[in-house]
Amino acid sequence: MKIGVVTFPGSNCNADAEFGATITGNTAVRLWHKDTALPSGLDAVILPGGFSYGDYLRTGAIARFSPIMQSVIAFANDGGIVFGICNGFQILCESGLLPGALIRNEGLSFVCKDVYLRVERTDSPFTRALTVGSVLRIPIAHGEGRFTAPADVINEIEGNNQVLYRYATSDGSIVAEANPNGSINNIAGITNARGNVMGMMPHPERASDPLLGSTDGVSVFASLALELSSR
């Protein structure tokens, strides 16, 4: 299966995301922000982490209008699998492919550390290889990761079970102390209502090799691989 990884000016996790895509046997295809079309036969697109366009105006706000994003948006609207990590999640929210927005962390600081995530659903393309309630240790590295949305949108997200990952303690408790950025309901990753687009602030690609200290992120990419092979 072919997974495209977009590089924007300021992306800095594109090579890591390509690595993440390939550890599960898929092929990573490099995509450039100026490309106007996606290569034929692409099975999924990853928007990697970084600081696209210098985070000018708002995180993800300029990237959303880059030429390739018009194709990515069409691909997603057509049911294609799109996965945004960190800045990729911010771009997906700005694009309107995911609800809500990511704003300055509650503590005002950039937070770079391992966090624990509780898996909320396993019937999604992005969590298939996991079990509900299991806990992953994956790093975050962001200054704008506080997930927010108007109350009615939060109710809709929760009502549709669109939350895939929540910040938790190592034993899976969803408490305020486990929330690194002030996200509403400890939300770390969500999917759209249709289920084909997902964004998460933590970096599974940075937890995908024993040398990196954790391999818990592999199961996120394994889920994606499982989904693509079953399509």
């Binding site: 704003i103 300055r104 962390n105 509650e106 503590g107 005002l108 927010t148 108007p150 109350a151 002030g182």
Partner: peptide, 14 residues
């Protein structure tokens, strides 16, 4: 500016 319903942490710090 941030919507009123959203906690403006920067404003709070200032």
């Amino acid at each position: 500016s941030l919507r009123r319903a959203i906690l403006d942490v920067q404003g709070k710090a200032v």
